[in-house]
């Protein structure tokens, strides 16, 4: 039973993200892609995808699409995460949910690439 406008707004705030999820994203939205080929899934890509997706919903981060893509084809680097922002794609390797959330916060939201996790950094080692 809803007896006042505040409790109505509470339900609204709870379900608004659900409904907004289905709105058309603008073409300039940042894409966060989790590589989910067989090896990626085996290495734990699913946990990363779910961690990112729930963070985006919970913190109501707008204009970001968290989705999956095919195998990364980078041996020994799975799980792999790609962030496509402003026309540039950065590839991150050997991900864990914690690292992925840090990338979401620092790269996607604040705009600073987390250079220590990138493929380039891994290759340089």
């Amino acid at each position: 039973m809803i007896t006042n406008i505040e409790s109505l707004k509470k339900i609204r705030d709870q379900f608004k993200p659900v409904v907004d999820f289905r709105k058309e994203n603008s073409p300039d939205a940042t894409k966060v892609l989790v590589c989910m080929g067989t090896s990626g899934i085996a290495a734990g890509a699913r946990e990363i995808l779910l961690a990112l997706a729930s963070e985006v919903t919970d913190k109501q981060i707008h204009n970001v699409i968290v989705t999956q893509t095919g195998a990364a084809d980078i041996p020994g680097a799975e799980p792999v995460l790609k962030v496509a922002k402003n026309g540039e794609t950065v590839t991150y390797v050997n991900m864990t949910p914690e690292k992925a959330l840090r990338i979401l916060n620092e790269h996607v939201v604040q705009g600073t690439v987390v250079s220590e996790y990138t493929l380039d950094a891994a290759n340089a080692k």
């Binding site: 406008i5 109505l8 707004k9 339900i11 609204r12 709870q14 379900f15 608004k16 993200p17 659900v18 409904v19 289905r22 709105k23």
Partner: peptide
């Protein structure tokens, strides 16, 4: 967009406000 059988989703679109 919404599930018509869910009042919560309707409220999520500012329904009944």
């Amino acid at each position: 967009v919404i599930n018509p059988e869910s009042i919560d989703e309707y409220i999520g679109t500012d329904g009944y406000l």
